[in-house]
């Protein structure tokens, strides 16, 4: 059989908006650091209640793209183009960036618990938003720690410093912390890169559970993780989205040769 691989440079899957609910979408996005263009050509849609993995070699723009989605790049980069969140362009000056970030939560590469108790880490943002009812806060703490699958390990130590936790537990507390402000999108920037294999596996299981309630977008440098975990995968290279498709297709029958090279380990 002849090689039927698409010889064009890029392949981006598009949903039919009539059939699927799109939570987030970017159009004509361009990110500049100073004057240099760091990322462009990534018109991607994210389906509700799915996990989408962003993969690619380091420097490919995947993290830059992710951080643009909740405008965490505001201070360090210029972001042009549209970022649609449930149809509303959130990349415009009139938008309240804090409300955006509440709805589109983020978990980072290194676990970064604050120098507060576990309880305090989770309730902190709520308290800043004026929630002081102890019963409500207690409930949120229990609910989110359960969602992050770390409740059983820390329930007796809620008032101990979160910075004394192990990496895996700390990262889960950080996830619980992000869930406490009731986002509906969760962005994760290589959340398992600082964790051991067992913690990583547990984290992946947790994310599969969370998918029921949240739309999850995760950057990972670990291709097995993307293959195991995600429903859709975007492959980035040199600041562009090269291929976007169902994960199964990306890893078995990629349409672009570059993707094939990357997922089969020929470069990266």
């Amino acid at each position: 059989m002849l090689n039927t691989k698409n010889k064009s440079d890029r392949f981006i899957y598009h949903f039919n908006p009539e059939e699927t609910e799109i939570t987030m979408q970017t159009k004509n996005l361009e990110v500049y650091y100073g004057k240099s263009l760091a990322m462009h050509n990534a018109d991607i849609q994210f389906q509700k209640n799915t996990i989408t993995a962003l993969i690619g070699p380091s420097g490919s723009g995947k993290s830059t793209y992710l951080r643009s989605l909740n405008r965490m790049n505001d201070d360090i980069a210029t972001v042009k183009g549209q970022i649609l969140y449930q149809g509303v362009d959130i990349n415009q000056p009139k938008i309240d960036v804090y409300e955006v970030r509440r709805r589109i939560g983020m978990v980072f590469q290194r676990p970064n618990p604050f120098a507060k108790s576990i309880y305090g880490n989770i309730t902190f943002a709520l308290e800043r938003r004026g929630v002081h009812d102890k019963r409500v806060l207690d409930e949120v703490v229990e609910k989110t720690l359960k969602q992050a699958a770390v409740w059983d390990q820390v329930k007796d130590n809620l008032h101990k410093s979160a910075q004394s936790l192990s990496g895996g537990q700390a990262q889960r507390v950080c996830i619980a912390r992000a869930l406490a402000v009731e986002p509906d999108v969760l962005l994760l920037d290589e959340p398992a890169s600082a964790l051991d294999p067992v913690s990583t596996q547990q984290l992946e299981q947790t994310l599969r559970e969370l998918k029921k309630d949240y739309t999850i977008i995760i950057v990972t440098h670990n291709m097995q993780q993307a293959a195991r975990l995600s429903d859709y995968t975007v492959f980035f290279n040199l600041g562009e989205a090269i291929e976007y498709n169902k994960t199964r297709k990306i890893f078995t029958r990629p349409k672009i040769e570059l993707t094939d090279d990357y997922v089969s380990g020929n470069f990266g």
């Binding site: 709805r103 980072f108 120098a115």
Partner: peptide, 12 residues
């Protein structure tokens, strides 16, 4: 990382 954590929660 600490600053990012705060900003990521939608805090000023």
């Amino acid at each position: 990382d600490q600053r990012q954590g705060g900003l990521g929660l939608g805090l000023s």
